[in-house]
């Protein structure tokens, strides 16, 4: 075997957490984005009573925000 090196695990404070931590943060950003803006959309729905459209827009907006967050927080290789 070509010397099974353990991948360099600096684990320093500047470094992003290990795989498990990142996985949970990525998922929480996606679901969080959807939940927060979906809820705001739902409030707008009840206020303007536009019947479900604003919630949908909110969910898509939140999902886009979640993806941008994941890309910015976890996706920029340092």
């Amino acid at each position: 075997m070509a010397g099974d090196q353990k991948p360099p695990n600096t684990g320093g404070p500047g470094d992003s957490p290990s795989g498990a931590g990142q996985g949970w943060t990525a998922l929480s950003y996606l679901i969080g984005g959807m939940a927060v803006w979906g809820f705001i959309g739902w409030l707008v729905d009840r206020w303007l009573d536009t019947g479900g459209i604003a919630t949908g827009v909110g969910v898509v907006l939140g999902m886009a925000g979640g993806i941008v967050l994941v890309v910015r927080r976890l996706g920029t290789p340092t």
Binding site: S28, Y29, G33, W37, I40, G62, G66, V68, L69, R73
Partner: peptide, 18 residues
């Protein structure tokens, strides 16, 4: 988060919630 300023208002509530 390190992102352009104009989408920050969308990102900050998500960051706070999560």
């Amino acid at each position: 988060p390190p992102a352009p300023w104009f989408i920050l208002p969308i990102l900050i509530p998500i960051e706070f919630a999560s």
